[in-house]
């Protein structure tokens, strides 16, 4: 994660590891916006939120 430069790349890697898909445009922008606004703890909150999505729970 440290080697990734742009927030868009981080969004993709995060979505790939949790939901096995790339982030779509609006999700990339959400991550980008939030990461700019907050610090690294925002990132853990985003991961928390993804783990709690119905998408993570239901898509098998």
């Amino acid at each position: 994660m440290k080697n990734l430069r742009s927030n868009f790349e981080k969004a993709d890697v995060t979505f790939m590891s949790i939901l096995s898909r790339r982030a779509i445009g609006s999700e990339q922008h959400l991550l980008d916006r939030e990461l700019r606004a907050g610090g690294p703890e925002v990132f853990s909150d985003l991961i928390w939120a993804l783990l709690n999505t119905p998408e993570f729970l239901f898509i098998k």
Binding site: V42, A49, N52, E55
Partner: peptide, 14 residues
């Protein structure tokens, strides 16, 4: 903040 994110992700999936 976490709830807000969760809500955003959930809506698009729902």
């Amino acid at each position: 903040r976490r709830l807000k994110y969760a809500e955003t992700f959930r809506e698009s999936f729902a």
